[in-house]
């Protein structure tokens, strides 16, 4: 095989790695034996090749904040199943009265950078080794569990600190035991829930921002973390609308979760406030998570304008009884540390 110096170069790697045929090897070695220049050139090549393969390439750790940065960006991107922080924040700043006009008017969340499985009761703040994120901190998690004893869909709410400095309200959802087949569940963050019993609320992105939707089986729990932005006024609550439907049953409830400290002075619920505004005010001012179930929300249409007084001398239960008890609602403390409002 007659090859020139340039052709020989094309075969350097294959020769070094034993990828040439015996005939090609014979041709290669025949040339290089008689060509001092190619022999020296190949020697440099082979030395470099061998050292490249032996070069010290010890891995280093990825930067500590890399994952949090990635998750933060992901959380802010519009996605089919995650609500858009950009849109949501844009909505807030486009309607500043929601944030600045009323201490009770704003809820805030950026989404869902994680998830937490909750087994305990009460609104405790679990710790996990110095503030590291739990296993599913970046989004909703589904975990097999025993069936829920009863409605409502929302079983628990806990506060969790994420590694990127945001606080998360982690909602644990479980279908009521009366449901034996999977249900489609949708979660929305409410900016304005006055027509909370109206299904069309869900299509009004000025008032309800989609947070999650999907199918939930009867024998699993879904944990849905929602991150809360800072710099919100005292008395602010995060209001999450949960809607589900299965072949045999539909349901709807709203959770009102305080996310900032109570204001120093409590403001009475104004005469004529809607059910939604009244419950939201009590949740924020009395630092009490309240869930209004399907029956309560269904009863809204026939409920007259609410009036009542709240004040520093009352506790949350008294405030709820004062505002809602006279309108036929029942107020039941739940093991999860929240009050459930129903309408028999």
């Amino acid at each position: 095989m007659n090859i020139n110096c340039e052709r020989l170069q094309d075969q350097y790697s294959d020769y070094f790695e034993h990828l040439l045929s015996p005939n090609e090897v014979a041709g290669f070695e025949g040339h290089i034996t008689s060509c001092d220049s190619c022999r020296a050139d190949y020697h440099t090549f082979a030395t470099m090749f061998q050292f490249l393969d032996r070069a010290e390439v010890a891995d280093v750790d990825a930067p500590a904040g890399l994952r949090a940065d990635i998750l933060s960006v992901i959380a802010q991107r519009p996605a089919a199943k995650l609500f858009s922080v950009k849109d949501w924040l844009g909505g807030i700043f486009a309607r500043p009265q929601l944030v600045w006009g009323s201490a009770l008017g704003a809820v805030a969340c950026v989404i869902v950078v994680g998830a937490l499985i909750v087994n305990g009761t009460g609104r405790s703040v679990p710790t996990d080794g110095g503030g590291t994120s739990p296993a599913c901190m970046a989004g909703p998690c589904v975990t097999p569990t025993v069936p829920a004893a009863a409605a409502p869909l929302l079983q628990n709410v806990t506060l969790k600190e994420g590694t990127e400095g945001l606080d998360y309200e982690v909602f644990t959802l479980h279908l009521p035991s009366s449901l034996t087949s999977a249900a489609n569940v949708s979660a929305y963050v409410l900016q304005d829930g006055d027509p909370v019993a109206d299904k069309t609320l869900e299509t009004d992105t000025d008032k309800a921002t989609p947070a999650w939707s999907g199918s939930l089986a009867p024998n699993v729990s879904l944990t849905l973390p929602v991150a809360v932005t800072s710099d919100l006024p005292p008395g602010t609550s995060l209001n999450l609308l949960l809607d589900w439907n299965s072949p045999n049953q539909t349901g709807r409830e709203v959770a009102f979760v305080p996310v900032t400290p109570a204001p120093s002075t409590l403001t009475p619920v104004a005469t004529g406030s809607s059910f939604y505004d009244a419950v939201r005010a009590i949740a924020g001012e009395y630092q009490q998570t309240i869930v209004a179930d399907n029956t309560a929300l269904s009863a809204l249409a026939s409920t007259p304008p609410l009036s009542g007084t709240t004040g520093n001398e009352l506790n949350a239960s008294d405030a709820l009884k004062s505002v809602l008890g006279n309108n036929g609602y029942t107020i039941t403390p739940q093991p999860g540390g929240y009050y459930l409002i129903s309408h028999p």
Binding site: D59, P63, R67, L82, V112, C136, A138, G139, P140, V142
Partner: peptide, 21 residues
């Protein structure tokens, strides 16, 4: 792939070192 960002968080944990290096 089913939209569980918690799972993607776990994937980042597993592969961030390789990708970064």
């Amino acid at each position: 792939q089913s939209g569980d960002t918690g799972a993607f968080n776990e994937l980042i944990k597993l592969y961030e070192r390789a990708v970064y290096n």
